[in-house]
Write a protein that binds this DNA or RNA. Sequence first.
DNA 1: GTCTATAGCCAGATAGAC
DNA 2: GTCTATCTGGCTATAGAC
Lengths: 203, 203
Amino acid sequence: MVKSKDTTTEAQILNAAKSIFQRKGMIGARMQEIADEAGINKAMLHYYYRSKQLLFEAVFKKAFLLLAPQLNEVMNSDDKICEKIKGFTHNYISFVIKHPYLPNFIIQELNRNPEFIQKLMTEKHFPSIDKFRNQVNEKVAEGILRPIKAEQLFINILALSIFPFIAKHLLKSIINTNETEYKQLLEERKTEVADFIINAIKI
Amino acid sequence: MVKSKDTTTEAQILNAAKSIFQRKGMIGARMQEIADEAGINKAMLHYYYRSKQLLFEAVFKKAFLLLAPQLNEVMNSDDKICEKIKGFTHNYISFVIKHPYLPNFIIQELNRNPEFIQKLMTEKHFPSIDKFRNQVNEKVAEGILRPIKAEQLFINILALSIFPFIAKHLLKSIINTNETEYKQLLEERKTEVADFIINAIKI
DNA sequence: GTCTATAGCCAGATAGAC
DNA sequence: GTCTATCTGGCTATAGAC
């Protein structure tokens, strides 16, 4: 029987590395920790990925390519604006509930190493908001939407979807909720965020 | 002549540490780097603050106590809700434009060490949204505001104010702007964010 | 391919002269 | 209080046996 793709040593390492890097970041992660998580020897990490830096880049790229296409898919679809907003916020929040460390990982590592984004921008699937921008400008000109810059609206959509995951611990304390209640709030946001945005922009 | 408070060695160290820790985080920062920034010897850091951990905690606490009272001041004032929102977003965004590393620093270090927030919660000035919550619930009951949970509204206000600073590099690339243009967008948000929120909640 | 042992480096911390 | 020199531990990376 051929080994399934996820049980090869190489894949086991990548999964373990993903888990550790996303929780601790590039600098905070320890190769020994990754090896332990994968249940194999530390030397094997170097055998397969040469260095910590290269292992990290493999993890980062994979994570980025998981988030980016979702941005594109919705932003550049042919849906109407309200449908886009509903679709995007619902899908994105659902996705991030399943992968809560992902956005913070991406944002944090891009802050640590802003030049890294240059490499990513050459990728085919790097997100763009061109279609979304045209749509918004058009509808604003027609008087169907309140005047707002497409860029600001885009920032708002992303902020409302992602921030509650990034600032989870701070927000939990300020609004004085426990873990269960906070998860409930996040669930509600799957629809709440779109309602909020649409009320904000419709005439 | 008595030395001004900011030129004592102790204060020089704290300022240098603030600058380095906020940019690199607790793990990324190097004691040597902080000493260089302060223009003094590495051994002095230990003479005044004993260890990296204690120096870090001094910086973190000072930073937190800079952000927290602003939250309280607006959220628990006697202003009407719309005034609160306008006042808070304008002041907070202005403040963060001047201290762009601050929110990310706080959020990042709280994620790394969630237990740390327990210590902070015992402080007098730890933010609470009690008054704001009552106000929102009241106005919603009266039918003056669209139905929304105060907690969700609070999260939205903070998200729209802070996220553009945290995700700066990512957002800059996606919306394809240079540094100057992005700063301009942030400037606009001093009023844009409040308009957006108020439109979203008013009937 | 997988392991053990270790080289080599770097950073926090301290000893001790001044 | 301030400095130089050094200790110590931890981490990445590799050499080499199996």
